[in-house]
């Protein structure tokens, strides 16, 4: 059962210079259901598959608003995500109080990166068992970041994390060049199509299991200036039109599904 002697805590390097506890924490992210994020020149979207423990239970939330301009999607330990989410909310609020404007998305993401790194260097602590996609808008435009339990944070054009997310990433890589100029609706549809790639057979997107979150910049009516479209989460009937619009959508479907078949994981 034990892989080696070097994997019991996050303060022990293996002879190859690896820290297994951190790598195992990254595995926890793959246990969570899949979430997808994409950023265009005007919008940043997050889409997610929600899971329910049993037929009659409610679905676990996957998307959380952090501040007016930022939202996150989570994959992994939900309780760890809530800790990070609370931290991010407080930091955003504090930033508004002191500086009178919203926090740049990169600054926010680097804060949780630093927080998570400490957990990988001190005995008695454990790495966070959650991965995040952080989407938001600031002065520089829309952004999408990935956060890993190691404390690694990187800005992405589009990304997917969680169970079977490789299929979604393959879809995103194929359509990478289209995203920059996508409108709001088209960007959401790309997100949902990527999400569908990662679904287990016989599962479909429904109004119950699908969440969509959008933040963006919109041209104001009066003058040429842009206004922030606050990060908003859409659930239930609000997402039905989007789901219908990608139903029976064969584009990229069958062809993209092949290739990464080796990484089959059972979605509980």
């Amino acid at each position: 059962m034990f892989r080696n002697n070097y994997d019991n805590d996050s303060v022990t390097f293996s002879p190859q210079g690896r820290i297994f506890q951190v790598e195992y924490a990254a595995e926890a992210v793959k246990q969570g259901s899949v979430v997808v994020g994409i950023a265009s020149n005007t919008h940043a979207v997050l889409v997610a598959i929600k899971r329910n423990a049993e037929e009659l239970s409610s679905y676990q939330k996957k998307l959380f608003p952090i501040d007016e301009h930022v939202g996150i999607a989570i994959a992994g330990l939900t309780s760890d995500a809530r800790v990070l989410s609370n931290f991010m909310k407080q930091q955003c609020l504090g930033h508004r109080l002191t500086y009178g404007r919203s926090m740049p998305v990169r600054t926010l993401v680097e804060m949780i990166g630093s927080k998570a790194q400490i957990n990988t260097q001190h005995y008695g602590k454990r790495p966070y068992g959650v991965g995040l996609l952080v989407a938001g808008v600031d002065d520089q435009g829309p952004h999408l970041f990935e956060f890993q339990p190691s404390g690694m944070t990187e800005e992405m054009v589009a990304f997917a994390i969680g169970a079977r997310s490789q299929m979604a990433r393959t879809y995103l890589e194929k359509n990478l060049d289209k995203f920059a100029d996508c409108g709001r609706e088209e960007l959401i549809r790309h997100g949902l199509r990527a999400l569908k790639e990662s679904l287990v057979q016989d599962r479909e997107l429904t109004v119950d299991n699908t969440s969509v979150g959008v933040a963006g910049l919109v041209a104001s009516d009066q003058d040429g200036t842009t206004k922030v479209e606050p990060f908003t989460v859409y659930d239930q009937q609000e997402v039905s039109a989007w789901i219908d619009s990608v139903a029976d959508d064969k584009e990229g479907g069958a062809s993209a599904a092949e290739g990464e078949g080796g990484t089959m994981e059972v979605d509980s």
């Binding site: 800005e155 990304f159 990433r169 890589e173 990478l176």
Partner: peptide, 10 residues
């Protein structure tokens, strides 16, 4: 490490 990384952003 990934095509999906935003070029020159990190």
């Amino acid at each position: 490490t990934s095509k999906l990384l935003k070029p020159n952003a990190n």
